[in-house]
Amino acid sequence: MQKITQNQLIEKAASLLSDGTVNAVLGWSRGEFGYDVTPKMFKTEEDLKENFVWNDFCGVNFSKYLVSKTDRFDGKILVFLKPCDTYSFNQLLTEHRFEREKVYAVGIPCEGMVDVIKLKAVTGEGISEIKEDGENLLVTTIYEDAPVKVAFKDVLLERCINCKSKKHVAYDELMGDEGEVIESKRFDEVAKIEAMTPDERFAFWQNELSRCIRCNACRDACPACTCEKCVFDNPQSGVENKAPANSFEEKMFHIIRAYHVAGRCTDCGECSRVCPQNIPLHLLNRKFIKDINEFYGEYQAGAEVGSRAPLVDYTTEDLEPGEVFDRRDIDA
């Protein structure tokens, strides 16, 4: 149910390409079943017209791609950024991970993206076509004669249900109307886990993290994880590991990964979206964000370029780690 249409984006891309403003367009390309879109660099108008798609399944955050794409491409790249993508965009600029001049950013409004797993839970297997119909999706499957009607709102990705902002914080050009930062309920789930007993919390995470297969999709999709060489890949680091073992290695991986992006994570939710095992990894990141907000004042990574991340900052009046718990106990 996107407000802006595919054709509008193609027109925009084609015109910027033809007038020489940009030399390539980073966009989504058509898949086999309507929902499996793949990022692609478009270089010609024909390619755009034939393969460019914009629909409810364009969840991929392009900001991370800019790091590698601008590095290897001589010229200017047009990138379409959804509001949440713009936060990552700023954060990467803050960390000097790509050259701003090489990018032409077009902000596009987003009404939320669909979670294919949730969709399939409603429609079942065998999806052959997906059409939009007002506030609904009409899904044709090989098993049903008539298309199944699914309410768009019911099958949104978790990160979109708890969307934090419809406002674009960075762009060269904006299409459609500017949105607002939203009072989201994104920390509710974190608070729910905080309210559990330690035993319950342990059981919860043990169950979730033990499913990890260490495929590194969360890390490789994460726009904050842009280290040239991850410690977990580096044999010299002493902590290199690529297999879950005894439930320790995977815990270590996820704690350290969340920690390393703490204060820099914009809460774009890619980690949870890409996890093949559906582990709610975003909760780890949100826990850090929530803590940082509570301990050191509200901070949104990527809201502005150049802001100082809270964990590389301090005041002389900061809380002691012990007081963190005291305070929470009083709150509870």
Partner: peptide, 24 residues
């Protein structure tokens, strides 16, 4: 200022370990 950084880092880390159910 090293220990000021430590204070923030460990506050965040200990809180996370607690979040995962590890005895504080």
């Amino acid at each position: 200022s090293g220990n000021y950084y430590t204070r923030r880092r460990m506050a965040a880390l200990f809180s996370m370990l607690d979040f995962l159910g590890i005895e504080r």
